[in-house]
Design a protein around this nucleic acid. Structure first.
Lengths: 199, 199
DNA sequence: GCTAAAACCTTACGTTGTAAATTTATGTCG
DNA sequence: CGACATAAATTTACAACGTAAGGTTTTAGC
């Protein structure tokens, strides 16, 4: 038989294919990329990817999971690089969030696409999504917040996500207004969630 | 020659096809619906729609434009049905916005999809989108707001859109939390945008 | 009632995702 | 060391897609 593939081989192939997929999604858009092109980009025959992924949706789920993980990486890196106080950390995480979205719009749009086949069948994707989500609330620990941290995290998240998605849908006049909007919204959220005695 | 089609005939056919398209998009999702199915649903041969629309993207653009118009209708109806004071009107419009999104999720997702072919070639779509957008800021007139109405409109819009899109992306625990999030966010925005003397 | 053209239909082509069959390559054993 | 067994990769094949091209039906105007 041919060299049986080790788990490393499998992981390696999957990585190479996802790398190519990310590049091509970012360049030509998600819908325009075919499995044949993906296979060609890494120099294998059109059907070879099916030995490593169940179908095209599974490839997409893997790319989405990678995007979530990169996103969480970026946020955690910002968290650790910031001054060791809750406010500075939160600001750094927020900035990293927006930077990631604006620098990797295709990844961001893929992560939060609303027309995705139910993620339930892709445990890696679910894990990555939850990690990303946890990162969005963890940085609030230590902040003087007057309510459930989970709830406050969702408020901040919405304050970033709303303007970004309006921007990506082409509903905002220019890129500058996204950042302005986010700043105003985050400031508003900060005022409502901060404990009375600190206002 | 056969009965040449009047502009009404054309509008009629387009309407029937878009009706079918909306139904089928809502039921099976955007990607799963084919032109052949659309044609079959209104009892014509697969190529007949091409006499009324340039291609599939044009059909999609028409459906999106209709969604925007329906959305604007819903908001304007709420505006006019509310008590004749700015605050009541704004609340009514906001409620109508959220209700529309939750009752017609497929329409809402279609409207604000981020992977749409550039709308520039579809004037009807652009008009509908701008009408919808104008409706989102007009209702603020007369409110005691300390800044550019346009800017304030975008803030309110983001406060609704962010939680809704997180919800549609499957990132929120349940439907109740969408509404709660929106209420908190809108309250926060109201505080930041209201004129000092009215606080 | 004939004709011309508008509207519609049928056929046909290249591409897509992927199932099934085939080939290739290599670990194992006589 | 050679032959087989079999995992991996490739090739072939198929149904369905969007839609271009060409053929057919229909009816207004003479």
């Amino acid at each position: 038989m041919p060299k049986p593939r080790t788990p490393d081989d499998v992981a390696d192939f999957r990585d190479r294919l996802c790398d190519a997929a990310e590049r091509m999604f970012a360049e030509h858009g998600l819908e325009a990329v075919t499995i044949r092109q993906l296979a060609g980009a890494i120099g294998v025959s059109p059907m070879t990817p099916y030995g490593y992924f169940k179908d095209k949706n599974a490839i997409l789920a893997a790319v989405r999971a990678r995007a979530f993980n990169r996103h969480a990486d970026a946020l955690e890196h910002a968290f650790e690089g910031a001054a060791h106080n809750p406010v500075a950390r939160s600001m750094a995480v927020g900035e990293a969030y927006v930077r990631f979205a604006l620098e990797h719009p295709e990844a961001y749009k893929l992560m939060f696409d609303t027309n995705q086949p139910d993620a339930d069948h892709y445990p890696d994707l679910i894990r990555a999504g939850e990690r990303s989500r946890a990162t969005m609330t963890r940085h609030l620990q230590g902040m003087p917040i007057d309510r459930d941290l989970e709830q406050a995290g969702l408020l901040y998240w919405s304050a970033l996500h709303g303007p970004l998605m309006l921007h990506f849908a082409g509903m905002l006049p220019d890129k500058a207004s996204v950042i302005g909007l986010i700043q105003s919204l985050v400031a508003a959220v900060a005022r409502t969630t901060s404990k009375p005695e600190t206002r």
